[in-house]
Design a protein around this nucleic acid. Structure first.
Length: 575
RNA sequence: CGGAGCGUAGCGCAGCCUGGUAGCGCGUUUGGUUCGGGACCAAAAGGUCGAGGGUUCGAAUCCCUCCGCUCCGACCA
């Protein structure tokens, strides 16, 4: 392909609306063009990379024994009502009506459709296990699209679904996908780390996310250097330090004046207590119902854990008015005598002498015994806190560290959540009807492509891994008007194509500096410079995007040498 | 949706406070000189100043409403 016949516009300046480096580069290198918030056109260069990621995904899915299918993006709402997710997904699902006034949805994911499909086809244990997948555009009405392709309203996802006869068999299918994912990301040149994750609205009981570490990542990942435990902050656990109780336990509770103290730190200072002997009491409203949560003074509540444990769709902190109505003014809340359910973090179990708000502005209560106090009713003890760096590993007790990550893939063990609702049964060896066990597996293909850039770039531009670069080789035609030079380029281009190399020629009538800068920006792995100067010295100059110096290679043997180099680069990633 | 910011040429921005001729850099077109890491000179094309309303003799500028975009939070591949 030739630059002058390709729709590429490289930009010198960073786009005004891009924040993270991969988003800037995506736009500057002319890979995508924004149509509107969360909606992007893939330009020729960007599409080529995207297709390469897709190809790797397909190869690995096929290798793992999955079959490619293609399901409709447009789906009847009834399917979603059947699974019970219509309300749950409602806000983030694009819905519309057809001319007969039937409510339709643009698929944000396909558990419902696929379960409906296979229920008709998979009727015997002899057909199982079965895994199907598709590469398709998904639609999600994101609350806040962000960072270019990272979180967009329309994106390309590879979604796979496995169906098995038993939990054990399902675990094997899960493992096969897990292994395929590991290979897919490695082949894309990405370091993606599997971490234990929250299953969210997809459901099921066990899942792993594949995370690309990056400061711009939207998730926190807790990691243990010692034993290798890794988990998304949304679900990470910890070994809890013992509760700090007072010197003299079980004294009668006592109200103390704490004028002006509204934060834990202020109250702790006022009472002369350490913050981990304080109890933080928070009033929330979950699906319209008020409740109270208690965590240690030095801990943060993890709202997503609370939401999951309550099974709530909406969850927000109560406003001042609501808080005062059911407990006390914000800043002085406590669990004594409240008429709403109170849930406490497991880290507070055994707390016999702690301090809380007194439900009265300017007062706190000390010597509070959470278990024995007759005025305190704990509806449930749950893991509710946000685990942070410095907390102890739940497995081995070593100190946890935290990093940011981009979620490029997510694998779920779903159990029978969907297959039961859709009555997806098969006949086993004994002719007995059984419900299939399901798993689902997603890769954000467009996001993966951007994650590659996020992880692999320098000040000059993108550094594409050879497997997913829009082109493997860029030839810079430095003196387009020189017939000898352009003759060499024509031949080299042709020879490389014959050898199966993706080659791109910058044939613009630009000064060399411009071409060098753009070549670095676009970032193809091998750069070949063909110019009068080089030819006079005896050949063409071959340089890797990652390297510093270029090799002078005789024009006649250049194609073979370059093709070998490309093959080597790809082999290193594909092993 | 809550909080913050922005919207002026394809891109990046100034002008707005203090109302009066629509401006700069990059890019684009033409001509010339250049030519190995984002050249220079000259000429040119390109604008409903996000939209609507109001104030005013006069609005990019002041006021109101709406829309869009970006950032922080909840959602997620």
């Amino acid at each position: 392909m030739r630059w002058t016949r390709t729709m590429i516009a490289t930009l010198r300046d960073d786009p005004q609306d891009a924040e993270i480096v991969s988003h800037k580069l995506l736009v500057r290198a002319g890979l995508v063009k924004k149509l509107s918030g969360g909606l992007y056109t893939f330009l020729p260069l960007g599409l080529r990379s995207l297709k390469k990621v897709e190809r790797i995904v397909r190869e690995e899915m096929d290798r793992a024994g999955a079959q490619e299918i293609l399901m409709p993006a447009l789906q009847p709402a009834e399917l979603w009502q059947k699974s019970g997710r219509f309300g749950q997904m409602g806000k983030s699902m694009f819905t519309l009506k057809d001319r007969a006034e039937h409510i339709m949805a643009l698929g944000p994911t396909h558990e419902e459709v696929v379960t409906d499909v296979v229920t008709n086809f998979l009727t015997s244990y002899k057909q199982l296990p079965c895994t199907v997948y598709q590469v398709q555009t998904k639609f999600r009405d994101e609350i806040r699209p962000r960072f270019g392709l990272m979180r967009s309203k329309e994106f390309i996802m590879k979604d796979a679904y496995s169906f098995d006869t038993s939990m054990d068999a399902a675990n094997a299918s899960y493992q096969a996908m897990y292994d395929a994912y590991t290979r897919i990301f490695a082949r894309c040149g990405l370091a993606a780390h599997p971490v234990e994750a929250d299953t969210g609205t997809i459901g099921g009981n066990h899942s792993h996310e594949f995370m690309v570490l990056a400061p711009s990542g939207e998730d926190g990942i807790l990691h243990c250097q010692k034993c290798g435990y890794s988990a998304n902050q949304e679900r990470a656990e910890r070994q809890c330090p013992p509760v700090r109780n007072g010197e003299k336990s079980a004294e009668p509770r006592e109200k103390r004046s704490t004028p002006g103290a509204h934060t834990i730190d202020e109250a702790a200072a006022s009472l002369g207590l350490p913050s981990d002997q304080m109890v933080k009491s928070l009033v929330y409203v979950a699906d319209g119902k008020p409740l109270m949560v208690l965590v240690r003074g030095n801990d943060e509540l993890c709202e997503c854990k609370l939401r999951r444990l309550l099974g709530a769709t909406s969850l927000e902190m109560a406003d001042d008015e609501t808080s005062a109505k059911f407990a006390g003014p914000i800043g002085s809340i406590g669990p004594m005598g409240v008429q709403i359910p109170v849930y406490a973090d497991i880290g507070l179990q055994g707390a016999r002498d702690v301090a809380t708000g007194a439900n009265e502005d300017g007062f706190h209560m000390v010597h509070v015994d959470l278990t024995a106090d007759p005025d305190i009713k704990i509806a449930g003890w749950m893991d509710l806190v946000n685990v942070v760096a410095g907390d102890r590993c739940p497995r081995c007790g070593a100190e946890l560290s935290i990093e940011r990550g981009i979620e490029v893939g997510h694998v779920f063990k779903l159990g029978t959540k969907y297959t039961e609702k859709f009555n997806s049964v098969f006949l086993d060896e004994n002719g007995k009807s059984q419900v299939m066990v399901m798993g689902c597996y997603g890769i954000g293909v467009t996001r993966t492509m951007q994650a590659v850039i996020e992880q692999s770039h320098d000040d000059n531009g993108i550094i594409w891994p050879a497997t997913v670069a829009p082109f493997e080789v860029t030839i810079l035609l430095l003196d387009p008007k020189d017939a000898a030079v352009s003759g060499v380029v024509d031949r080299l281009e042709h020879e490389l194509q014959e050898l199966g190399v993706d080659v791109f020629v910058d044939d613009r009538e630009e000064r060399p500096g411009v071409k060098f800068k753009d070549a670095d920006l676009i970032g193809c792995p091998v750069r070949v410079v063909v110019g009068a100067k080089g030819l006079a010295k005896g050949g063409v100059e071959v340089k890797l995007r990652t390297g510093k110096d270029s090799d002078l290679v005789p024009a006649d043997s250049a194609a073979a040498a370059i093709a070998a180099k490309v093959a080597e680069l790809k082999a290193a990633l594909n092993q």
